[in-house]
Amino acid sequence: MTLSQFQVRFHGRGGQGVVTAAELLSVAAFYEGRYSQAFPTFGSERAGAPVAAFCRIADRQIRTRSPVSRPDAVVVGDATLLHSGDLFAGLGTDGYVLVNTSGGIDRPALDRRLAELQTERIAALPATELALRHLGRPVPNAVLLGGLAALCDVVSLASVQRAIAERFTGPLGAANQAAAAEAYAMVAHPAELSGASPD
């Protein structure tokens, strides 16, 4: 796949690891020989505060430094953010959305832009549940990346796994890899996913 530029915006809360998720996505893309750039919006470091992070992936050097205003994909790390702020600003009709929720996503009620998205480009993923099950902690960053790899095919699961392994050593790394793999499977085969229908 050639890429002029693929831009991802992550929304989450401090402590969920969305900044790390953006960073790991950029590392995964780097492993695939692409140029990539990840950076957070930054506030004072407070657990629970809304945080956004960005990742750009391209086949040539990325020079722009401005925040991602026209994302190709939006990852929502915490469903409680869905009703606060304009999470999907700039998202085109061919965009992708991944939401961490154990329920479904009521697309039209949430945002008219979601209603216009192709069904297979929007996914709900119980990422916190997966993280708790695999890691024992509600830190869904690796899980979300596994899901994103399945959803939009911009990086392979193998590269995501490699980035996770480099970042997290020992049992934590293995658990994160397992969690990411399960998330990948859930998003790649949504039929097998009970109770998390995109609609």
């Binding site: 950029s26 140029y35 990539s36 950076f39 430094r65």
Partner: peptide, 8 residues
């Protein structure tokens, strides 16, 4: 913009 940006 630079200190916290991850890039090549």
């Amino acid at each position: 913009v630079l200190t916290h940006a991850v890039e090549r």
